[in-house]
Design a protein around this nucleic acid. Structure first.
Lengths: 356, 356
DNA sequence: TTGTACGCGTTATCAC
DNA sequence: GTGATAACGCGTACAA
């Protein structure tokens, strides 16, 4: 509003000292008489002065600020990632800007450039699928950048060989979860329990969303694990329809996201004995299909028979991203790293039985 | 790093014009020859110039920045709240700082004052239970402030009469969910299904956490609803132990948080027929206790027999908070408002049957 | 111990 | 149309 916040100048005038003396007191520098200090502090108190950090940071050149750009900050995984990043930021005295792209490349670019215009020291970005060339100039100008949960321009990546395109690889560090390894472990788990006809429920065809990237990585691991076991894969198993699950000809299904897990469980519950979630007449017949989901969720152990999931630690992922950022800010000039965090299979019952 | 980002001065030198001309071009002001504009734009391109927003904002006085201070940003409710706030912020061209207090009053104060020192235009705060007098000076200086999910210094509130202490009420607008009304509706729902001995599982004794505040509000509504129905309340029903639930002498229980809902469900599953979540021998006997939770969660409909919850719309709550903030920034000088958003009972099965 | 002069990168007020 | 010059609120050399 029109209210004029007191500045150091005002404080100096009130205390009858020079600007620099106020600055000294505020910054706790030595070389000020206790008496003057007292006068300055009194003036600060009376005026309700609070140093304008923006002005200070303009002068000193560093902002002690990081940016977090997610596809959607409120998404459980990304919120947890944020949490890990915030831990690091807080410990190091950094403040955090945050924003969601909702999977819109223009929005990502606007957000990122806005943050750069405010001179954040670094950014953690959950990238959309688009091109990230617009960042090159900013990164070259010194804005440390870490990509999280997926690499930038994954479309340009050779996902089969897992080798990143050199240009994109040079943009910044990347921290991801090992979805591919997780899918392998899940399929191996199912095979160990006797399953042979295993399907995948996801959206590998959606290029733009984080969920699409994950689906592709999971599908890759799935395909590799099936091939390694010498099992044939019907192409329809890779494009399963939730509603048609019960008659899809598979005895087990790997779900690419929480949403897909929910869809599968709903479809199976509905197909059970037609009696809905109120409790089937023959509950032991309800779980003919083994289910493994990607992404843990609240009370997964209470959904009968307990939902087996592949999960990772998104908080740790965020912490790792933050630490990489800090290393860069400390002057680390090594080439960009790709960090792949392990995933874990959490068996709870929905995948620990043989096929019919 | 040591890299010198080009400034308007550099651009001016390169284009052979004055500083002000560059400023004019950058801001799209009228009165510049197309030829000069061209030269300036070329220089901008060649140098990779990007305006330093911090410097601009220092000069203009407004930062177009809001702050979001949560107990924990990654908490589902608060992440959703953030999302609603971000919608409003984005539409109005504001950037967002965010941070978590982890329920530590000092941390809240440090965060809030840091944001004020950076001259945010407004803040949305999920307050800790402590005193918020430290904010008075900032609010007086023009920082619009909205408290969300709980009022500041709830301890000083007369929770029985629901009247806020005047001093705290004057601090800023407040947006909360009507937990009290939700508890009333839940208890009435249970009574309508024939229940008479109804318990409450929560942590009303924890003063510091958001969960504690919610528990107290829910317990208040619970008590009122029981009294209104002329039903006696055994004091032990207000301090239930999850493990002792099956033998607590109640036929229904209202849970104060997702965590408590989970505890109750686990305890009941364990007590069921001793066969765990794998499926009870007599599933119809497993739900002797009616359960209503506060706070919806993923796949609540898949936990048999479907978990009935009281829920509200945290995204809407965040949007409301953002809109209140915008109204204040637009110059609204009305006395602080208390907005109470309605909650809804979502019946799914766990509370829709009579007592044994 | 304290103060002066200047610069950070931008916008705003005037002249020319 | 264009350009000096001051100003925003603060930090830093260097002088007093």
């Amino acid at each position: 509003m029109g209210i004029h916040r007191p500045t150091m100048k005002d404080v100096a005038a009130r205390a009858g000292v020079a600007l620099k003396t106020v600055s000294r007191v505020v910054n706790g520098e030595t070389g000020v008489t206790p008496a003057t200090t007292e006068r300055v502090l009194d003036a600060i108190e009376e005026l309700g002065f609070r140093r304008n950090e923006s002005a200070r940071l303009l002068r000193t050149g560093q902002t002690a600020t990081l940016g977090f750009i997610a596809e959607q900050v409120a998404d459980p995984d990304q919120a947890a990632l944020y949490r890990g990043l915030e831990e690091v930021a807080r410990d190091q005295g950094f403040l955090l800007y945050s924003g969601s792209t909702d999977n819109d490349q223009d929005r990502e670019e606007r957000l990122a450039l806005s943050l750069c215009a405010r001179r954040v020291d670094g950014m953690v970005i959950v990238p959309t699928s688009g091109d990230h060339g617009y960042l090159a100039a900013e990164i070259a100008a010194g804005v440390a950048t870490v990509f999280a949960l997926r690499p930038p321009a994954a479309a340009a990546r050779d996902e089969a060989t897992d080798r990143a395109a050199p240009a994109e690889a040079a943009l910044g560090d990347v921290v991801v979860a090992d979805e591919r390894g997780g899918a392998k472990a899940a399929v191996a788990h199912l095979i160990a329990h006797g399953h042979r006809r295993i399907g995948f429920l996801g959206t590998p065809g959606v290029p733009d969303a984080l969920a699409g990237y994950r689906s592709r990585r999971l599908a890759l691991g799935y395909t590799e694990a099936m091939a390694a076991a010498g099992l044939p894969v019907d192409q329809s198993w890779l494009s399963l329809n939730p509603a048609g699950l019960p008659g899809a000809g598979v005895t087990a299904v790997l779900c690419g996201s929480r949403a897909h897990t929910a869809q599968a469980l709903h479809a199976l519950a509905a197909a059970g004995q037609g009696d809905g979630p109120g409790g089937p007449a023959r509950p032991e017949r309800r779980w003919r299909l083994a289910v493994i989901g990607f992404g843990d969720f609240e009370l997964a152990d209470l959904v009968p028979p307990g939902i087996t999931v592949i999960s990772y630690d998104p908080v740790r992922l965020g912490r790792t991203a933050g630490e990489l950022l800090m290393r860069r800010l400390a002057g680390d000039g090594e080439p960009p790293r790709l960090v792949e965090l392990p995933v874990a299979l959490i068996p709870r019952g929905s995948a620990e039985f043989p096929p019919d």
